[in-house]
Design a binder for these strands. Structure first.
Lengths: 342, 342
DNA sequence: CGTTAACATGTTTACGTAAACATCATCCGC
DNA sequence: GCGGATGATGTTTACGTAAACATGTTAACG
């Protein structure tokens, strides 16, 4: 694995050292350390001062070994500075904190199945009680060799039936976006999608198509993106050439940002000429120009439920494979959408 | 602390179980597990299949206890979905992966000294070999009660002399931004700053002021921001009222985004009427409208050096308090800056 | 065929903590 | 003032791993 110090590393004073200095047994030190009350105040004080003098801190490895628990959740993500990713990471970290857990992050070099497997293997050797997998793009549920018995939750619904999953309600969200645009009088809605191998991206595509079909509208060809702003920019340049395009639904807000850029550049006005809707409601969405109409994901709730579901498995020691929770999304209407041009 | 399962948690099969099934000693299992070569192929195979059958995974707590090392770096950040934060987190996680380490994240509820102390206390009980503190806004170096002997690095230079620090070269970066604007003919440059209690924010203010003074220009009053896009928006509304304002240097790209929003809204053209420069070079900067001229931080390099410096202390077991590395910044000129209006 | 080296494998031990159990002192009521 | 209860403290042990040391087995060479 590497990374380890070959020999003994920083190992501070142990309970035995404190005990020797305080003139008590190490068990008494343990009692003080855990805050039990069956210790005489005078003794407690002796131990406390010995701890302070030596700079004692409990060894969490030993504790973990004793308890079989680390108070730590593992999390696998790819390119975590991306908007959706970082919001999810933040939310999971926050929810974990409330439960008294910390989060250990591993990022993937690439979202390939191999890298995912490597990451899982590395985390399997790490000190975690459970695992959260965020947007497992390329890796399918079958290809994942997880340590048996390790509780897992996933924020990608392709894993339903394999692992419990929590995610935004992609389908309803995409429908909201498309219906909003149709309601403004647009004849149809174009879509700049996420990458092929992403479950959420596929769900947004499907819901977009289904909504158009249900309304009896033409379904234009999907413009492939990859979540990036750059792909949105390119898509924008392409779509702007077609004067029939009056409404675009982007797979995420970054893509939408790039699209807006392209439209500004070629002089198409938003929303007068073209309306744009994003997905995620990133922090910057309301400060873009124009402020972006988007489908808000409740990241905080998603993080909370991911952690809940994970800890439920950790505590009860049973897998919940069939669970799939869809967290409601809501449309946030700002200024990037307007009535279809006459 | 909380969070622990009261009784024994998931504890899979141990080496002893594998050894029993394979008919060898646990030490042989250990050898196979560690990939040593002094095991007969036939024996290795027996052990391997026993491992597979039982679903054996090494217990990292026991390993950590044995080695005194976790292969894990702790990281404290606040609001980590923020641009600069998430880029730094990403960079540190990536650099740590290269070194064979994972990163345990704790986010602060608020950047107060109390919360910081609580976070440190919680991490002190966690399984980490060293600690990275990112932008310790409110908490000063003195107020931090760190576990003695725990290697620490900080990405905020107020900690120089207390802990080794790595950060972007704020001063040079701010100077680049201001000189760029002066070079375009602007008489002076206004500044929307970060929060009072931030070290980097203060350094950017100081460098902005020093550069203006060195050029013999008027130094306008600082407009206080708080890193957020919303604060940039408000600052923008305020600054737009003053027709003398032709150039604004924002403390970060989010603030700049909000500022652009405000300027668009009131009809001031960028860069024809007002030039805007940001700081950070977030992923979206080049896709904003107009694409944002900004001071790029080399987050990847910062992350790498933070991890290097930390692991150096971990491995050599000595503190490097006097180290302070400033990673060069560079100006990325895009379209939000232009010649001063005539 | 015997001696020895080289290698494979087993045994013992320590890492730091905390539960379980054992012991010892103190204080209460009669 | 004595038996028993209560509470404080000490002792033993196990958690899973891997280093250090010990032993056994095979092969090579004279």
């Amino acid at each position: 694995m590497g990374g380890r110090n070959g020999t003994r590393a920083r190992t501070g004073p142990s309970m035995a050292d404190v005990a020797a200095l305080a003139g008590v047994s190490s068990q008494t030190v343990s009692r003080v350390s855990m805050g039990l009350d069956n210790v005489r105040p005078a003794t407690r004080e002796k131990v406390r001062s010995a701890m302070d003098r030596l700079g004692y801190a409990p060894n969490s490895a030993a504790r973990a070994l004793r308890y079989g628990s680390f108070g730590t959740i593992g999390m696998i993500a790819h390119r975590l500075a991306r908007t959706g990713e970082s919001r999810t990471v933040e939310a999971v970290v926050e929810a974990a904190r409330v439960e008294g857990y910390t989060v250990t992050l591993v990022d993937l070099e690439s979202p390939t199945s191999d890298d995912m497997t490597a990451a899982v293997a590395r985390l399997g050797h790490q000190a975690i009680d459970g695992l959260v997998i965020v947007r497992a793009e390329a890796a399918g549920p079958e290809t994942l060799a997880l340590p048996p018995g390790l509780p897992v939750v996933v924020s990608d619904s392709r894993f339903v039936g394999h692992h419990p999953a929590v995610g935004a309600d992609q389908t309803a969200g995409a429908r909201l976006a498309v219906e909003h645009l149709l309601g403004l009088g647009h004849r149809t809605v174009h879509h700049v999608s996420g990458p092929d191998d992403s479950g959420p991206a596929q769900m947004r595509i499907d819901a977009w198509r289904a909504t158009l079909e249900a309304a009896g509208r033409d379904v234009p060809a999907v413009v492939r993106g990859d979540w990036s702003a750059a792909s949105g920019y390119e898509a924008g340049l392409r779509l702007a050439r077609d004067p029939d395009v009056t409404a675009v639904f982007c797979a995420n807000d970054e893509t939408a940002t790039g699209l807006l850029h392209a439209l500004h550049e070629v002089g198409r006005r938003v929303p007068q000429d073209i309306s744009v809707v994003g997905f995620d409601d990133i922090y910057l969405a309301e400060q873009l120009w124009p402020p972006l109409t988007t489908v808000a994901q409740d990241f905080r709730e998603i993080g909370r439920r991911l952690v809940d579901l994970l800890l439920q498995q950790v505590r009860d020691d049973e897998a919940l494979v069939d669970v799939h929770e869809a967290v409601p999304t809501r449309l946030v209407v700002r200024e990037s959408t307007g009535p279809a041009p006459a």
